[in-house]
Amino acid sequence: MMINPQMDKNHLIDNVESLLAPAAVVDWRRMEPWTVARAELSGLRGPVIVKWVRPHAAGSARSESWRLRTEVAALRFLADDLGLRLAPRVVAADLATCVVVLEDLGPRVALDELLRTDGAAAHGDRLVSFARVRGELNAATAGRAEAYYGRRSALGAVDRVADCAGRFAGFREEGLRQAAERGVALGDGAERELAAVLAELADPGPFLALSNGDPEANNVLVRASGVPDARLIDFEFAGFTHALHDAVCLYVPGPGWLSVDAGLGEVYREALARGVAEAQDDRRFGFGLAAACFSFVLVRLQRLAALDGRAAGDDSRVQLVATVEAAARVAESFGVLPGLAGWAWRVGALLRRRWPDADVELSVLPAYAARRR
């Protein structure tokens, strides 16, 4: 939750103590650079996590206060309505002052930190737990949109259409424009397939499920040793959307990686199928997955112009090539969207010619090879 507004520490402590009276704060550790702190309070068995924003933060419709309300609604929906232990529990909240106290999931740590430090080979069981918990979230919440939005609407207006479209949907046209300007426009067949993709994502049918809105490995906490016991965090952009948006990160490199382990997708799919029977249908699952992957590709392509200006050797160039080509492989593996797959291969070839430094053999990269910042 990287935001600028600051709140006086003493005022925050007063708010927390008021919410959890008669407990008193005995230790306060800010978790920079976020507006998050870990607090120890007398009378409590362990620490809690405190998140805050200014009550009337200015900005877009999805302002900081909007996001905090969304997180509270989503976490209470999971814990109180569904009885799930997939994410932290809300201990207390004062949404008038935008202060929320959450269960501390320590000693778990962010999965991406472990992958960057030790490599994926050292954490195979944690990656499996990551894939499974994403599928479990989607499976348990499919068909429960009305219950969630009843709870969310009680905390303020919410746009279901925007939730389903995804937080970056507006970048799709820009990505297409930048690719076309460089000589790789969609052909007629690919254009028809793209229309079908957007229709699938706008109307997911049985695949409509809750997502936290950012399914990457930085938003899952696992135990560094023993049973991984994964938990999901950061529900500020939560909403009901196509479940297979949450599977993209298992097949296509996300912003932090040059490679992933696509075998994890079957772990996710097995967990999803327990709540969404249609996930067992290769054609149905494959089309939805490829649609979500190509949507992600279009979002990432809007960075093309910026990467043109980077110095040779910048990992972001290799990462974009890997993203585009991985989406093409997903479509081909399920025998769907051949026009878009062909277009993606052409985009990948264009980028390799344009950036000789990015013309590398991706298959030799280990799973979760990190993109250097």
Rank of each mutant, 00 (worst) to 15 (best):
residue 326 A to G: 13
residue 355 W to N: 14
residue 347 V to Y: 00
residue 358 A to L: 07
residue 338 P to E: 06
residue 324 V to Q: 05
residue 304 L to F: 14
residue 313 G to D: 08
residue 319 Q to H: 13
residue 307 L to V: 01
residue 351 L to G: 13
residue 343 W to D: 02
residue 338 P to N: 12
residue 326 A to F: 10
residue 353 R to G: 09
residue 346 R to V: 01
residue 304 L to C: 07
residue 357 D to C: 10
residue 352 R to V: 08
residue 339 G to L: 05
residue 333 S to K: 12
residue 318 V to P: 00
residue 359 D to K: 06
residue 304 L to E: 00
residue 355 W to F: 12
residue 300 R to W: 05
residue 314 D to W: 09
residue 343 W to L: 07
residue 352 R to H: 13
residue 332 E to N: 05
residue 346 R to M: 13
residue 307 L to I: 02
residue 359 D to L: 08
residue 326 A to H: 02
residue 361 E to C: 03
residue 305 A to W: 01
residue 302 Q to D: 10
residue 357 D to G: 14
residue 350 L to N: 06
residue 313 G to N: 08
residue 324 V to P: 10
residue 352 R to S: 02
residue 352 R to W: 02
residue 331 A to F: 01
residue 336 V to T: 13
residue 318 V to K: 09
residue 358 A to V: 01
residue 310 R to Y: 12
residue 347 V to M: 09
residue 300 R to F: 12
residue 327 A to E: 11
residue 348 G to V: 15
residue 304 L to R: 05
residue 342 G to K: 00
residue 311 A to E: 15
residue 314 D to G: 11
residue 344 A to N: 09
residue 336 V to S: 04
residue 306 A to V: 11
residue 302 Q to V: 02
residue 348 G to W: 12
residue 351 L to R: 03
residue 302 Q to W: 00
residue 331 A to T: 05
residue 311 A to N: 06
residue 353 R to S: 11
residue 337 L to C: 09
residue 360 V to Q: 10
residue 358 A to K: 06
residue 315 D to K: 00
residue 327 A to Y: 06
residue 300 R to I: 04
residue 302 Q to H: 11
residue 325 E to C: 00
residue 338 P to W: 03
residue 308 D to L: 08
residue 348 G to M: 10
residue 314 D to L: 01
residue 326 A to K: 09
residue 326 A to N: 04
residue 303 R to F: 11
residue 325 E to A: 13
residue 327 A to M: 06
residue 344 A to K: 08
residue 318 V to L: 07
residue 322 A to F: 11
residue 328 A to N: 09
residue 351 L to W: 11
residue 317 R to K: 14
residue 351 L to C: 15
residue 350 L to S: 09
residue 355 W to E: 13
residue 356 P to E: 05
residue 309 G to Q: 14
residue 316 S to F: 06
residue 343 W to P: 10
residue 360 V to K: 05
residue 351 L to S: 13
residue 302 Q to S: 14
residue 329 R to T: 10
residue 323 T to P: 03
residue 349 A to V: 01
residue 360 V to Y: 10
residue 340 L to M: 15
residue 312 A to P: 12
residue 328 A to M: 06
residue 325 E to S: 14
residue 345 W to L: 14
residue 357 D to S: 04
residue 310 R to N: 07
residue 346 R to I: 07
residue 309 G to K: 05
residue 355 W to T: 08
residue 329 R to E: 15
residue 307 L to E: 09
residue 320 L to P: 11
residue 334 F to R: 05
residue 334 F to Y: 15
residue 361 E to W: 07
residue 357 D to R: 12
residue 342 G to P: 07
residue 330 V to G: 02
